[in-house]
């Protein structure tokens, strides 16, 4: 039984690592800063969730599982906040997304017409 649980946990950890690789590829491949943020922040929280869930399964009911859960909670709190702060700062400082022919906001359209 515990063999199976360990195996499942390890597979989840591998899945988390794969998610992290995909996120890194997205950060390299995507065209502008905002899409890159999207790739990085979503895969960060997703990979962390998968990996920590896997490690919790491996460690079983112990203080380790509690510490892992604490790490998960902190990552869930800080990583999206940091991404939000960063995009907020970038947009405020004049970095504009590549939108092609579309304009999402009136403000952007006016700016483009200028």
């Amino acid at each position: 039984m515990s063999e199976v649980v360990t195996w499942i946990g390890s597979s989840l950890a591998v899945a988390g690592a794969l998610a992290a690789i995909i996120g890194s590829l997205g950060v390299i491949r995507f065209p502008d800063f905002y899409t890159r943020t999207h790739a990085a922040s979503i895969t960060d929280t997703g990979a962390a969730t998968l990996m920590i869930l896997g490690l919790i399964l491996i460690s079983g009911w112990s203080v380790l599982a509690l510490k892992l859960a604490i790490i998960w909670a902190f990552i869930m709190l800080t990583s999206p906040t940091a991404a939000h702060a960063l995009t907020n700062a970038a947009y405020g400082a004049g970095e504009r997304p590549q939108l092609g022919p579309w304009r999402l906001f009136d403000r952007d359209r006016k700016e483009a017409e200028r």
């Binding site: 902190f74 709190l77 800080t78 906040t81 939000h84 702060a85 907020n88």
Partner: peptide, 15 residues
């Protein structure tokens, strides 16, 4: 402005 930052800072500083 910066509600997100202030709220999460309020949660994080004690921790």
């Amino acid at each position: 402005q910066h509600v997100v930052l202030r709220v999460s800072a309020k949660m994080l500083i004690p921790m």
